[in-house]
Design a protein around this nucleic acid. Sequence first.
DNA 1: TGACATTCATAGGCAAAGCTCATGAATTAA
DNA 2: TTAATTCATGAGCTTTGCCTATGAATGTCA
Lengths: 309, 309
Amino acid sequence: MNVTLRQLRAFTGVYRTRSITRAARALGITQSAASLLIQQLEAQLGVKLFDRSTRSVQPTLAADEAFHAAERMLSDAQGLSRRMRDLAQARAGRVAFLASAGAASALLPLVLAKFRASHPDIEIDMRDVAADDLVPRLSTTDAEFAIGSVEGEFADMTVETLTRGRLSAIGRRTADFAARRALTWDELAQLPTIAMRRESRIRMQIDQALSAQGKRLDPTYEVMLINTALAMTAQGLGLAILPATMLPADQFPTLIARPLVRPALTRPVSLLQRQGRTLSPAAQAFVATARAVLAQQPGPGTARAIAQK
Amino acid sequence: MNVTLRQLRAFTGVYRTRSITRAARALGITQSAASLLIQQLEAQLGVKLFDRSTRSVQPTLAADEAFHAAERMLSDAQGLSRRMRDLAQARAGRVAFLASAGAASALLPLVLAKFRASHPDIEIDMRDVAADDLVPRLSTTDAEFAIGSVEGEFADMTVETLTRGRLSAIGRRTADFAARRALTWDELAQLPTIAMRRESRIRMQIDQALSAQGKRLDPTYEVMLINTALAMTAQGLGLAILPATMLPADQFPTLIARPLVRPALTRPVSLLQRQGRTLSPAAQAFVATARAVLAQQPGPGTARAIAQK
DNA sequence: TGACATTCATAGGCAAAGCTCATGAATTAA
DNA sequence: TTAATTCATGAGCTTTGCCTATGAATGTCA
């Protein structure tokens, strides 16, 4: 057998109190049990630790030395337990995850704020990544999950759609525009529009869906960054064609989104996880927050209702 | 229950090998036992430590953190065991003891040299103390034992006489002096002599013993330090009246000792220990060496034989 | 000094922990 | 599909660990 922490606990107790009986009481065991633990430890280490008579328990020099090592181990043990407990309760730790630029811009700030409030001591490491890179990066880096507009199946990955953003026309809150419940793609043709460039995922989805219906989008402007499109819209240069989820309300209070219909298109905001890898408690807490926050976003169901009206 | 070192050993093994089976083999237990240990630890800490399928065992982030703490504790445990083993075998450690000036001067250097040779890594802390202080100091300081000319009984102390030094006349190795086997106290009266001062223990013993026989010592010189007496003798100023054990042969090669008889007096060289206090292994080794070395000193038995001749 | 109280050690007995063996389930390799 | 590997689980046995009771030693107080 080998030295046990039990023995060390008894040892430090006896060392401090200079009494087997008192140490036993403190440990919640009987005096005889404590006596045995000390004897075991002595046998184990091959050293006499206490000169004991029925009347006194005197630590030897060896005990003086052993005491420090023992205390350190015990405090390490306690520290380990506490630290793990904190991790388990998501009171400490770190969340590292990937976010595609789109998801990160409008939706995640909300989630981050809420999570920060409830878990102030968790370190957050959010890494912006191009949507195409989400899956490959997730398998190779230490990120625990990814959030972004991804659909489909991937090997060793689970994909869960948290919410869907309706492709919308985003414009200034004019009386005219605000009165509309929805716009059709056809109506857009007569209006100045700002869309993402053809290389982008969003644009490709749009072009594909429209061309299937013999239609096409002919934007007035084409930009690379979502923020650019929104800024231009705020300046009155036209309507931005984007998923409604990508409009940060607080950042652009003058803008509103109206769903585009015929056809109604949606882009998912999905959660990607590696299969067979449990999330850290901190990550689980974060994901829970994300689900809760995103569930409150207006879903595509409303969009369909409007489209049929 | 609580975390055990057993669990931590299994944990670090699995963490390193990323396999329960391999770790179990390394620990000399079965795979199922190792599996259980990991489960226990997880339950204990409230954290999942490995994502395990039948095919792979992946440490979680919590495991990464726990690993370092666990390793530290285990290496502490090993260090403690090793250190204690070294102490037990007197391969490491410290001997702190008291020595009266007399004992320290001639006898102990021999012991020290021999002990050093056989136990090179033991730290030696020898403290010179006046003979009268040996007992009180031994009860209050951390010295483990004392060596000196002490006789009698003391509370809580054991006294063991290691050897006895005959009170002798020490003089230069002249043909005349070397021819003598012994001298009587009466013969001294006609010779120049150097004795310790009346306040000293040695001198008090002499004066008492002689006056009991109606004799007295009338030294030419009286000094305080043994070394002074010997140095004066080496200069030919007279015969030093001292226990033979106090003549360091290597330091004064020209001097020899001849026992004084009628009456033959001896002074003990004793080992004092606190009762009920085991000596550290290092101290035990030192005491053993001291016994061995001092047993080889010419004892008082020879002196008696000569006196009767 | 003698009765008492306190403290440590030890023995017996029992409950629980810990291990092994056997088996099952999952997954990869051939 | 079969075989092989690996982890999990259950049954059963051994060992450990603890408690109770008791004994021995020692200090305390009358």
